[in-house]
Design a binder for these strands. Structure first.
Lengths: 407, 407
DNA sequence: ACGCCTTAATTCATGACGTGATTTAACTCA
DNA sequence: TGAGTTAAATCACGTCATGAATTAAGGCGT
């Protein structure tokens, strides 16, 4: 991960990198477009491009007339230069997806989990099984895989080998990378699931183009991904963005993390249902929350009570979001996660209003609050962007197969 | 502020910059030391050094024996290459200080303010008067001044001309830079006072060497400065770090910002005194808070009540700090501001404990919570570092006098 | 078909830069 | 005084980005 700088060679790597990034997100582009977009001279674009085409990362694809003159040749990423795998370790299932470079899904695999028993061995088995399945189904050789991104709940401590701390479900410094290493030698990128979902929204969803944003993930629990200067902020030990355990009510409800007054203890789906207290139809949290929202809308005896719980939730959420606005001054707040979507669909305007009441005028005015745009696969998708990010940054060199022997 | 990158010339500027930064903070250093510290080759260090000495930014200063061989020549910044001015616009006074490049004070000036009437004109007059005074007292020509840094309370919106929003004391988009421009043509750098104080602690105080830190400023109100990747984080419209108005108690006390439940409404000095409610000796908040702390320690009728108020304060503060730890995952939290110091001296261990109770284990374990190390002039000192930062980054070119005509 | 025009991309000559190897500088010690 | 030692400067070389010049690839009018 060491990034040298200072020699004229590093300069080339950086230029190559900005060129790849612009091409990745705005393709197809002609060499001329690239020159304009990156600020590099046409000559340099030509040189770097030749190199990239030679390596097979970039391909020429069609051309466009330019009234009267020589037509522009369009450049694209080569989608099959290499493949990436994204893994979403969720509360109820492990999902594994195989993508090409442009993030087209090639194969999927699901592995159900017992929600109340996050056995490490089971998770490891599920991931390894999923890897084998998608490679077989997708017809892709392991040597063509650039890497495997894995989004897990809980804090991921990056180091020689990533450790996972899941304070709310009993994982304490689990050496997930080491455990997986014995079953595969693909390059692994393990990160917090909220962060990978955030990166998915940043790259392909409601966060596109943002330099500073916060993606809030509200599911059973509450998490967030903070984007600063265009990339995921990780802090000193890569656990930044743990929004769910911000105190919004000193001395308040006890949270499953052990503290009291956490946002998650009020606005997480589990907490919402618990605060409502009454039984609801549906055998999982998702349908229960949907039922609660329906109850609040429909006339009936439970309506007022349900609406009150939801309105309180909006207030808590608004307070939490207001804090994010004040602290991070983002240009965008994106509300995601299945519970975030349900709540947002019902009461996004109210959430905005509560966020306004709990933040300062100037930063609030600079922020837009929106719903996420990607579906439930965003965690896996975002995880799969991790190896792509590495490729775009120019760390992964020429041939994709080489990455296997990177022990 | 545009920073080009991509040409071999930009590379030189960057290398020059890292060399200047290392020299600034670890001087004196020999060329060899610099080579080792920056990773640049001895040859490059030699070249860049020659350039810097030629410009007068760096000077040779003495030498050190190296058992048997040619002695190492030590290099230093030239303290009188240029001068900088720092301005602290506080609640009760404006303080203006003149420094040389190495931040040795050359002159000071104070200008009292009526605490309850932050007249814009008065502030402008005070600053302009202070500038003239320190230049005269310090015997420094205006042409030798690299710039003037100004730390103000409230949100500073950077743009063509900096605007100041002081929501808590009635400044709304005040064009401070424009107003000052008519009285001086020195380069101006206006920033939030908590941020400039944070930068002072980062450069010279308890934050030295930190890559990720939060400097909490607790005075009459509450602010913070967030350091990410070694420099002040500003967000999309440079108002990031407004910690004081984070909600820690939904539906709680009304804050002077208009919202309810803000941290500032509980842990700011004004709020602490208000929560105590009873009269205290002393004619300003500072002596009143000191008296409150004394009352809690001494036996007496008011002791229990005072201790309770302070203990509550610690809890609120701990909740706020816990949120910072979870969200930013800093390696260090630094407690500053006059009230922060008073509270910290009394109960830093308790604050640490409450922060622990309100944060997740893993990020808390990575964080140390300390008191600031600089005195009450930190805001002005930090403001004065703003033009120095620009110099170190290589934006300011050869002769310091040239900066005057940078309109 | 042909030449002219327009635009895109490449090539070329140039200058800036960092670097390892070599040389010079500066000082110690026997 | 000369050998040894370490610091710094210089040199020769390779890499790179770039503006200018050149080539490539099409349209259009005659």
């Amino acid at each position: 991960m060491e990034r040298r700088r200072g020699t004229v060679r590093d300069l080339r790597r950086d230029n190559r990198s900005v060129l790849l990034w612009t091409l990745y997100f705005d393709q197809p582009l002609s060499r001329q477009d690239l020159s304009q977009a990156t600020g590099l001279s046409p000559a340099s674009v030509s040189n770097v491009t030749r190199e990239l085409i030679g390596e097979g990362v970039v391909v020429e694809a069609g051309s466009v007339d330019s009234d009267g003159g020589r037509p522009r040749v369009l450049l694209r990423m080569n989608p099959s230069f290499g493949y990436v795998i994204g893994v979403d370790v969720g509360e109820t299932r492990i999902r594994v997806e195989l993508f090409d470079l442009m993030m087209t899904v090639r194969a999927k695999a699901d592995y159900p989990l017992n929600p109340n028993e996050h056995g490490v061995g089971e998770v490891v088995d599920g991931i390894l099984g999923g890897l084998a399945t998608v490679l077989a189904d997708g017809g892709v050789a392991a040597s063509a895989v650039l890497g495997v991104g894995i989004g897990v709940p809980g804090v991921v401590e990056q180091g020689a080998e990533a450790l996972v701390h899941g304070q709310t479900y009993g994982w304490d410094a689990v050496p997930l990378e080491g455990l997986l290493r014995s079953g595969t030698d693909l390059p692994l990128y393990i990160d917090n699931g909220a962060k990978t979902m955030g990166q998915a929204e940043l790259w392909f969803g409601a966060g596109r183009g943002a330099q500073n944003a916060v993606i809030a993930l509200i599911g059973s629990g509450v998490g967030a991904s903070v984007i600063t200067n265009g990339s995921t902020y990780r802090g000193s030990s890569s656990s930044a963005g743990e929004w769910g355990h911000t105190t919004i009510m000193v001395g308040g409800r006890t949270c499953r993390c052990g503290a009291s007054g956490c946002l998650e203890a009020y606005a997480g789906a589990e907490a919402i249902l618990d605060r409502y207290g009454l039984p609801l139809p549906g055998d999982d949290q998702e349908s229960a929350l949907a039922a609660l929202i329906e109850a609040a809308a429909a006339p009936g005896p439970a309506s007022a009570r349900a609406a009150e719980v939801l309105d309180d939730t909006v207030r808590y959420l608004g307070a939490g979001i207001g804090g994010l606005i004040n602290l991070f001054n983002p240009e965008r707040i994106i509300l995601g996660g299945w519970a975030g979507l349900l709540l947002g669909e019902r009461s996004l305007p109210a959430i905005r209003e509560e966020a306004r009441r709990h933040s300062l005028r100037q930063p609030f005015a600079e922020t837009s609050i929106e719903l996420c745009r990607l579906g439930p696969d965003a965690v896996a998708l975002g995880a799969a962007t991790l190896p792509v990010e590495r490729l775009l940054n120019g760390v992964a060199a020429a041939s994709p197969g080489a990455s296997r022997s990177a022990s």
